[in-house]
Structures are given as C-alpha cells and as structure tokens.
Computed example of a mutant assay.
Amino acid sequence: MNTIDQQLQKATNRRLPKFIITVIVLIIFLWSTSAVQLDNITENGFSIAKNILMGLVQPDTGLLFNLTTGGVLYLLLETMAIAFLGTIVGAVIAIPLAFLSASNIVPKPVAFVVRFLLIIIRTIPAIVYGLMFIRVTGQGPFTGVLTMSLISVGMLSKLYVDVIEELDTSVLESMESIGCTTMEKIRYGILPQLSALFTSIVIYRFDMNLRDAAILGIVGAGGIGAPLIFAMNAYRWPEVGSILIGLIVLILIVEYVSNKVRNKLVNG
C-alpha cells in the first residue's frame, strides 16, 4: 500500500510541471500560427493547384518515357548517380572523423574539437553548399557530388559516433592490455563489429541524399531538379507531372530496397 501511495504522490507532484509545459507549448503554437498568412490565397492560386493535380493525372508521357539525355529516365539516373557517389565519398571520409570524435577512442579534447567542426558542417544547409560549389566548379553533376559528399560527412560522422560509443569497451581494454595501438584496435577490434551497422547507416543516408539531390538540381547542381523548376516556372504542368511521377516511383523503389537491405544487415 505504501508503494501505491508513493506512486500516487509522484503522479500528483508531476501534474504542475506537465500543466506548465502544456501551456508553454500551446502559447508557442498560437504564436507560430501568426506566421501563416491566408490573405494571399486567391482564385488564381486555386486554379494553379488544380492544374498541378491535372498534371499528375495527365502527365507528359513523351517526356516520361523519353530515352534521350533530356528525358525523365536519364535525369533520374543522373540524380541517383549524384546521390550514390556523394554518399560513398562522404561515408569514407566520415569514418576517420567519427573515430576522432569518439571520446572512448581518442582523448576528450580531440573529440571535442572534431565534434565542433562536424557541428559546423551540419549547420549549413545543403542548398547553401550547392550555391558555394557552383561558384568554384560551375554548374553540373560534379557540383552535386561535392555537395552530397560534404553534407553526408556531417551527418554520417554523427551517426557513426553514436554507434562507436555504444560498443562494449571490454574488447578494447583486452587489446590495449596486450599492447595494441589505436589503429590496431580500430582495425581488428572495432570495424568487424561495426561494418553491418555502418553499412545500414550509409544506406539510410543514400535514401536521404536522393531527395536532396533532386532539390539541388534547382540551383544547377545537376539532376532532375533544374528541369522541374523550369517546367514549373513556365506553367508546363504535364511536364511537371511526368517529372514528379518519375521521382516518386524512383524514391519508392529505392526506399523499399534500402529497407530490405538494412533489415537484413541489422537482423542478420
């Protein structure tokens, strides 16, 4: 009975903090709605929305199944290639940075400095990186690859570190007791345990990069984004519909395959 009374007392004591948090969330929600302006919605806007939906229902099949370099299929393959290559490059670069960020592998001051650098990398949006790289390398797929690589480094390093720091350190302690160096501990004691998890994380990042690569095309970083924005600006909604349908189908296929592979890797 004393235990029940204690639980009831704890529940009573938690009511006030929960009430305060609820009120704060509601205030922030109401304040956030002030940014929503419905005055700009006009009949022309509803007409455009209708045309967009009609474009999805009646896409430009000639563009959708066009096998030339200007067709949807080729542009989707280019977008997927940008995302894939950028993910692989970023995944490789992220491995040493992740180990340098893990406080259970390197001294804490070193881990702090590298983590701070990675936080800075993750803070900048992908589209900003794309605009900066365009000034350096010009428009094209190479710009998209560089951007995908950089944003992948920031996020993959963070996810790698989370996995590394959850490792059983008894293996590392045993290797250290027999005089193994840091690189030997990483090579023989850590990487064999992490390969499946790292691969799963990389596949997940590729899934995200595929969406980002489509957006980066808008700023001239290659892929399907540029034709999409050009078609939208010219109000060619059947072309927009064909591009969106192709992009949706590609993302669904990649997501299905990546989920299957990730589940197999994690669950053995």
Results as ranks from 00 to 15, higher is better:
229 I>E: 02
163 V>M: 08
228 L>R: 02
201 I>M: 06
249 V>S: 04
245 I>A: 03
170 S>V: 02
215 I>E: 12
158 K>W: 05
262 R>M: 12
211 R>C: 01
163 V>I: 13
166 E>L: 08
198 F>R: 10
225 G>E: 02
198 F>W: 05
206 F>R: 03
197 L>E: 10
227 P>C: 09
219 V>K: 07
215 I>G: 11
165 E>A: 11
148 M>Q: 09
221 A>G: 08
262 R>I: 15
176 E>V: 06
147 T>V: 11
154 G>P: 10
247 L>G: 00
234 A>I: 04
155 M>G: 03
190 I>A: 00
171 V>R: 05
169 T>S: 14
164 I>Q: 12
210 L>C: 07
161 V>E: 11
255 E>A: 06
183 M>G: 08
159 L>G: 02
178 I>H: 03
215 I>P: 11
198 F>V: 08
162 D>L: 11
175 M>E: 06
145 V>T: 07
257 V>I: 15
261 V>P: 01
191 L>H: 12
158 K>P: 03
192 P>R: 04
266 V>D: 03
258 S>C: 08
194 L>V: 15
263 N>A: 10
214 A>F: 06
251 I>Q: 01
162 D>V: 05
172 L>P: 06
238 P>Y: 07
144 G>Q: 08
245 I>N: 00
216 L>M: 13
237 W>M: 14
181 T>R: 00
185 K>N: 15
160 Y>V: 07
183 M>Y: 12
156 L>A: 04
196 A>M: 08
240 V>E: 04
195 S>T: 14
238 P>E: 11
211 R>N: 08
201 I>E: 04
255 E>Q: 13
199 T>H: 02
159 L>A: 08
223 G>T: 10
187 R>Q: 13
149 S>P: 06
153 V>S: 04
249 V>F: 04
179 G>H: 09
173 E>S: 08
244 L>M: 13
188 Y>W: 15
155 M>V: 13
175 M>H: 06
202 V>S: 10
156 L>V: 15
174 S>W: 00
160 Y>P: 06
199 T>V: 05
223 G>V: 05
265 L>T: 04
